[in-house]
Design a protein around this nucleic acid. Structure first.
Lengths: 234, 234
DNA sequence: GAGTGGTCTAGACCACCTG
DNA sequence: AGGTGGTCTAGACCACTCA
């Protein structure tokens, strides 16, 4: 509320963050508009804009034109991993994104998958395999199993236009996630898919997500050689 | 070089990205200053600033006052995660933990390290190499550089009983961390250290941590094959 | 000392969205 | 229709750091 001595977007950012952490502004609540805040802090709107924009980029607040800025739900505490949308990652790097669906089928879960997803016997799962390209070069191979008991609407989505990654991130919130990182050597099958040589190094992420006690999905992401990005916020 | 019709930081960002991808500006090369770019794009310096700043936040370019902005050598795929104590990880799995110090020396920072730690010329750094065992099997090879300007007390620690990982986690808080994950193929040297075969897959984590604006440490963690798991719960 | 990025200002116009 | 954020401008001063 009170003016801050050294007007600066960092101080304003910290002050807003403090008001949110202290629940002075509760989750879901609308905080004052940029103009109002600029007046309160005694600075220009651009300075407030930078502060609030960066908080929005970190997911602390959500902004919408006309409605205003509200405190995000999820009292995100200790390092929770964000699950990235591959398409956005690629576009953010300035590369052209292309997506290709390789397989989309309903199956009785194989034993390994049944165990990973903690499924009952004979449960049906959706098996999706697809490929993400950056500038027409294979960037990530996605091999995913979705628990249809928990996410039945996945059956009705073709996944030809939108990847299961993006679809799930947008439609299915999760409460817990587990990531396992590893390195593998490419066999012929995966080498062909990714357009690399047999024996090349692969970077593998295996992820499972839950909503409460229900497993939503298990996915194996395979990257050719190089690297991968994960962001967590505290 | 030519003006862009719709002046906007997004278009400028994309254009700069394009010039970098096309190697019009090569890695390590200095790109024109903000004022020059503003003139070329026919926009204000603030607009250029936002474009270039966001590229710097993504690790595409690196900026330093006076020296200017240069194209980054490796488009950093950065991330923030919790930093685990290896010993506790291993013990938590029910395995016996053993730690072995391989090297502990004060050195003038090599160029690559100097850049990673953002050190002044001729700064001294502590170089530590060590190995973590799980049940007497090599589990993780740690190759670390510590900024002695920032953490002078590290010189007085022998690191024969406690690993630099654990020592730093306990003694040196950090405000920011960056993780890059990748896969590599083992060469003879690292294969010997980890007791595996040349050509086997390696899982590599490169991590840097900061306290405010000071770099604390840069470390490369190498795991044989498939063994790194991170669990996060919301 | 001087050049560069870092930040700020006090306006402005526009796009989007909701009421 | 009008309020909100999104962006842009054309300056300005400062801080850092290199030469």
């Amino acid at each position: 509320m009170k003016n801050i001595k050294t007007s600066s977007f960092q101080a304003i950012k910290a002050d807003i963050m403090e008001k949110i952490k202290s629940r002075y502004w509760a989750p879901g609540e609308i905080i004052p508009g940029e103009e109002k805040l600029a007046e309160e802090y005694g600075c220009s709107r651009m300075t407030v804009n930078r502060a609030v924009r960066e908080l929005a980029e970190c997911g602390v607040v959500e902004r919408k034109r006309k409605s205003g800025t509200r405190v995000a739900h999820q009292p995100d505490r200790a390092a929770k991993l964000q699950i990235p949308i591959v398409r956005k990652e690629i576009v953010a790097r300035g590369s052209a994104y292309r997506y290709a669906l390789l397989e989309n089928s309903v199956e009785i879960a194989p034993d390994g998958v049944k165990a990973k997803l903690a499924l009952a016997s004979n449960s049906k799962v959706l098996h999706i395999r697809c490929l993400h390209f950056a500038d027409e070069t294979p960037y990530q191979y996605e091999d995913r199993w979705i628990n249809l008991d928990r996410v039945p609407s996945a059956k009705d989505e073709s996944f030809e236009e939108i990847s299961p990654n993006e679809w799930l991130v947008e439609k299915e919130p999760f409460s817990d996630a587990e990531h396992a990182f590893s390195a593998e050597i490419a066999d012929k099958e995966i080498a062909d898919i990714l357009g690399i040589r047999e024996g090349d190094a692969l970077f593998v992420v295996e992820r499972r997500t839950w909503q409460q006690n229900d497993t939503i999905t298990a996915v194996k992401l395979t990257f050719p050689g190089a690297s991968y990005k994960l962001i967590s916020r505290g």
